[in-house]
Amino acid sequence: MDYARSDTLAIKILIAGGFGVGKTTMVSAVSEIQPLSTEELLSDRGARVDDTSGVEAKTTTTVALDFGRITLREGLWIYLFGTPGQDRFWFMWDELAIGALGAVVLADTRRLGDAFPAVDFFEQRRIPYMVAVNLFDGARRHDPAVIRRALAVPAHVPLVPCDARDRESAKEVLLTLVRHAREMSRVGAN
């Protein structure tokens, strides 16, 4: 096989969480490119979940999907995908999640409940994930143990504070996730 091809690896990490929690901010903090927003054209599946009561059913709709890239070396890339925040686009998560190294669930202490669907999603699919609590300006600091309990996040899942705007903080979050994913793969292998 062509050396260049076999030596090329792309790794996918998802940044999930509720609408407006800072997913795009985190992607842009650590990505080497401006987060790219691609308008995804949805066909049948998207249209069916639309509430089209009394309206001619739409056959297409669009949803923005943000992603960024980190080049670790020539031929080794990490792609960060900000998952669509609206629940009705859950089926896009499904496809994005296949083959992902892991996921960061961003949480906002003012709206902790918004993180539930994402935590639930990754728990059910046994995808390695962690929770990063985005400390917005003026956000009240909470005891991590309280947040863990509120989100029903198991003890082995990392839960850390972060500042989604800060590159070093975002990097630290990704390092934590990759270490956790490696740990999970070791456990799974035994």
Binding site: L9, L72, R73, I78, L101, K171, L175, V178, A181, R182
Partner: peptide, 15 residues
């Protein structure tokens, strides 16, 4: 193919 070597390479690269 996500093996130990790749995890380590990703961690080193991120650092």
């Amino acid at each position: 193919v996500l093996n130990e070597r790749i995890y380590q390479e990703v961690l080193n690269g991120l650092r």
